[in-house]
Design a protein around this nucleic acid. Structure first.
Lengths: 208, 208
DNA sequence: GCCGGAATTCGAACGGCGTCCGAAACCTGT
DNA sequence: ACAGGTTTCGGACGCCGTTCGAATTCCGGC
């Protein structure tokens, strides 16, 4: 990978964390930060948008790595028994929640990426990442063990629900605070994660 | 309200449903569609962004009206007993789900609005709508009756979760289809609503 | 060690964007 | 009929992402 490409990726990652609005990330500002010419963005990545996607992809890899580490640790803890349901849910939603509340994390890159993917002229650019659910399959294996009375569709649906709830806390913090009358501390990741487990875990428990 | 303002709101609502990306809605195209000068947008609304917000506000009023109608009907059905939990959940999430899957609805206006609110230079413009939860209070009254063992924070938190799940199906349909192995028909609103009720209703039922 | 073609870098230029601004047109109360 | 405020208009401005041709750098084969 080219020297200039790396400089651009690094500059893009840094700037995406600084700006409030992705429109404030102009190709000229990017070029200045990276110490290269503005046209280098188009030359190396095709467009500014693709550079941002490539940047987000790099960050996603780290986030998913953290998820997999937590999942593997949960599995080893109980092996050869199935892992604890709570640990699996924490591995799935925990990293996003913690990163989103950690000011020095690179989560803002992913937040901007998500916002962009929803209003792009060319959604194809985002498909690979948005629809990339390979590493979710690892979670499905264990969730199926834990709730064998659910079929695959029901497991996948409940995972979608868990991710939707996760998105709700990472995206709409103020709104959640208003709805709960400020009685829940949404700035504390462990509180939020515990609350998510509280509603998600029963989805995988047998009805009675 | 001014003649030109109304023409702009109508044109904006129409165009927002047509375009795939909100950047395709230019002030010049808007002006042409409305039959007025481009500068009218700034004159009457302050900026193009504020015009879109005003347009979305109008559509939101209709959506929330539909929600309230469904809620009132559910309440009258059982009055003076509390309404059915399922009916309350359907009133809360049903209209969004149905609109998002109905091609001739104005839901795309709200989809674009949500995408914009997440990447704006000036989030203040959106606060009134995003944080406007007054009509949610009406739902809380009945949910509290149905689950008196939950405190207000727990009720609000579960409503947030329900709305998060709702957003997941209106925003990430393809992703959900992949996660569930295409075994759930996410194009049928009644199927989706039933699935949401299936996971949300237990949140308000007593543990056992 | 150098030479020629490919890869890279650069700055200028282009078309399109949202907004601003001064002049014209249009109302409306006297 | 006219004066004053409101509305409408089109042109101008600054900024945007991208394109393009020229200049520079790189590198394998002689």
């Amino acid at each position: 990978m080219n020297h200039t490409s790396v400089r651009l990726l690094d500059a893009c990652e840094r700037l995406l964390c600084e700006v409030d609005c992705v429109d404030d990330l102009t190709v000229r500002r990017l070029a200045t930060e990276a110490g290269v010419a503005p046209s280098s963005v188009s030359y190396h990545f095709g467009s500014q948008e693709r550079l941002i996607v490539a940047t987000a992809e790099r960050v996603y890899r780290r986030l998913n790595q953290e998820r997999m580490n937590l999942l593997n640790r949960a599995v080893q803890k109980r092996h050869p028994e199935p892992p604890d349901l709570e640990d699996v849910i924490v591995a799935l939603v925990g990293p996003s929640v913690r990163w989103s509340l950690e000011p020095t994390s690179r989560y803002r890159v992913l937040a901007h990426f998500n916002a962009m993917s929803q209003r792009s002229r060319d959604p194809e650019i985002y498909r690979a990442i948005i629809e990339g659910v390979e590493h979710h399959k690892a979670f499905m294996v264990y969730l199926r063990q834990l709730a064998p009375w659910l079929d695959d569709a029901a497991i996948g649906w409940r995972m979608s629900c868990a991710l939707g709830i996760r998105s709700q806390v990472t995206r709409s913090r103020v709104r959640n605070e208003v709805l709960t009358g400020h009685a829940i501390d949404f700035s504390d990741p462990e509180v939020v994660i515990a609350r998510i487990v509280e509603v998600v875990a029963p989805m995988f428990r047998r009805l009675c």
